[in-house]
Nucleic acid binder design. Structure first.
Lengths: 154, 154
DNA sequence: CAATTGTATACCCCGTTAGTATTGAATGCG
DNA sequence: CGCATTCAATACTAACGGGGTATACAATTG
């Protein structure tokens, strides 16, 4: 668990393909084809991506979608947030958080710290990073190298 | 989004309290009281925690639950996994992952790397860490300090 | 103006989450 | 030995949200 929704997953995949094409445009049905996703689903995802200014759309013949920025400047955090809204591990972490217990919960103000770190990891991983790293190798951006050392407790 | 389920959230809260009591035992209704959670819900959570060997239970008069290890040796990853199963951002990341697209998805083997990092963060954050850090201050375990620097791209 | 392509809305189904109730088993004490 | 206490196991229900689909609309281009 701790899943990202499928639509967000799709979004990353689509962005990845748009990145490889950039700056060329890709029509919606082409996207559906190349990603092997059903077209109606692609429609829904594209709306999110346009609204979040991650892709630029053009209508009419020879229209389609184009990644708004170089892949190195699009983070996974943005991609996920475009579809699912701000990243928040728990209710306490979200802006309009409405947790029943909040007032009397000892951890209500501790979670945001944990959340911040997870978000940072996703912010520091770009579409280009996804591309760069080998298959099944753990992706480790430079500032995170130490993370992969054996865990200290347990 | 990127939420952790409420039950997992509860689990962490409960573990936190058990940690503060350790090595004393705490009965289920006491747990419900101190956490302000409904008792039937606590019942459900406790089952997960026992099955995962994170707490030890004792029956009969003066029974109750006890944290199995010192709080510094219980990670958030374990707590969450106890309730929700192995952490997996996407289908590709889980053992029995059954993703429709998997064979033809260009990212199927990239996600696990990202997942690994997120998991590491949660593995490196213990119950004790939650306790140690001040309110609303981002919690930053030593090997993660560099993370909080400004993001490089975007 | 007509073909192409994206936009917007509204709908529904299904799974999961979360909350609850009930009955059963173990422990310890007098 | 038996009763009080406390955890264990199972099964059920309600509700919400994710995700998939259909359909009608608007813009651009040649």
């Amino acid at each position: 668990m701790l899943k990202v929704g499928r639509l967000a997953d799709y979004a990353v995949l689509i962005l990845h393909h748009l990145g490889r094409m950039r700056p060329a445009r890709l029509a919606m049905d082409s996207i559906a084809e190349v990603t092997h996703l059903p077209l109606p689903t692609v429609r829904k995802v594209m709306k999110y991506l346009v609204d979040a200014d991650l892709v630029i759309s053009k209508r009419g013949p020879n229209g389609g979608y184009q990644l708004a920025r170089p892949p190195a400047q699009v983070s996974l955090a943005e991609a996920i947030a475009a579809v699912e809204g701000p990243l928040a591990l728990t209710e306490c972490c979200s802006a309009q958080g409405n947790c029943e217990i909040h007032d009397r919960c000892d951890l209500a103000d501790r979670w945001p710290g944990v959340n911040a770190i997870v978000v940072k990891v996703l912010e520091r991983t770009s579409l280009a990073d996804l591309d760069r790293f080998g298959r099944h190798e753990p992706h480790v951006p430079p500032p995170l190298r130490e993370l992969m050392a054996p865990v200290r407790h347990l």
